[in-house]
Amino acid sequence: MKKVVLAFDSFKGCISAREACEACAQGVCEAWQDAVIVQIPLSDGGEGLVECVRRMLPTRSVTVEVHGPLMDRVEAEYAISADGKTAYMEMAAASGLTLVPQEQRNPMTATTYGVGEMIADAVKRGCQTIVMGIGGSATCDGGRGMIEALGDCRCLDMDCRVIVACDVNNPLFGKNGAAYVFAPQKGATPEQVELLDGRLRAFAKETEQAGRATPELALSPGAGAAGGLGYALLAYLNAELHSGIDIMLDIADFDAVIKDADLVITGEGKSDGQTLMGKVPHGVLKRCQEANVPVWLLSGMVDDATGRLAENFDVVRSINEGETRPLSVLMQPNVAKQNLKESVSFLVTNYHELSMN
């Protein structure tokens, strides 16, 4: 009897991490009917963090009305642990890009004020630790809005540990900073990018003059995450920045789960050179290598031009290998789930041959 651990990220715009795990489980069962299967849907710490946590831990859901990116009212949801001491949240729930219609996206005006309100709500409920994913932001305000909200809520100097799931290494400003790298994705013109970079520099100077940070902090890896929110979290809340996938794997007690596993299967929408830079499959790979457990990578698309994926994973496959149908068809959830199921079934059936290669 074999034990197989399924640890997928979502196939963005197609199927969720949970759906990917379920489709994969069906494929494994077709080949190994008596297999022990453990499903662990994952997130790299951005959008989807709260949903994954709620599947792993006993939590209760909290909904709070906050100001959205354009200062309109939105309902932001987060989770609180069973003992009431830890809040799990995503900044995108309050200040995410998906909350702003395409034609209204403008990082010149988008604010993180709602993030501060969400944090304040958790603190007032007695939470002592906040775990926050900071992917998917609509903002580039350096976290100024969050700080203003915490000040208005009288929570700026709260006694609370803040752990941030962050896989971005960019500094706050400069050519590799929040404005130049990320603001164009949020609707900024080249002229606005320069203005935003200037604002971030000014905010850092204000923060330094207030005695909240040294000049070096703005240049630290992750300060430019989420439009510079990483900087404000570091400077004002003394936050700890960690790899998002490592946070999720620790919550899932992943090392213990794979200790007696025969195989781990992971995947994402597209695997390429970015995969080995802190994405879900990379985090899974590192833990499996330490435990000496075989790990397969099955993704919607695979671009392994450098060969590094094949060098590290025991099997690397696109679930759409040999497909002639257009991408619009392959992105349909039912098609993706069927292709994932069939790919897994074929590979598991040929497990022994693959293991010998």
Rank of each mutant, 00 (worst) to 15 (best):
28 V>C: 02
272 D>E: 08
163 I>N: 11
339 N>Q: 15
199 R>G: 07
227 G>M: 09
58 P>R: 06
85 K>P: 00
266 T>D: 02
50 V>T: 12
249 L>K: 02
91 M>R: 04
134 I>W: 01
78 Y>F: 15
263 L>N: 03
243 S>C: 04
3 K>P: 12
151 G>R: 15
266 T>K: 00
169 N>Q: 13
171 P>T: 07
334 N>H: 07
34 D>Y: 03
177 G>K: 09
326 P>M: 10
131 V>A: 11
157 D>A: 13
336 A>N: 07
57 L>K: 15
187 G>Q: 10
156 L>H: 06
310 A>T: 09
94 A>R: 06
254 F>H: 04
18 R>M: 08
39 Q>L: 05
187 G>F: 07
25 A>Q: 14
251 I>R: 11
315 V>Q: 15
29 C>M: 08
78 Y>A: 12
278 G>K: 01
119 I>S: 02
111 T>G: 14
254 F>S: 07
57 L>W: 12
20 A>Q: 11
10 S>K: 11
282 H>W: 14
334 N>D: 04
116 G>P: 01
274 Q>P: 12
321 E>D: 10
337 K>T: 03
141 D>I: 02
88 Y>L: 10
90 E>D: 06
202 A>L: 13
18 R>C: 08
343 S>L: 05
269 G>E: 03
77 E>F: 03
122 A>Q: 10
33 Q>G: 09
159 D>N: 13
161 R>C: 10
175 K>Y: 09
32 W>K: 05
353 E>Q: 08
282 H>A: 14
215 P>Y: 09
61 S>W: 14
253 D>G: 15
153 C>N: 04
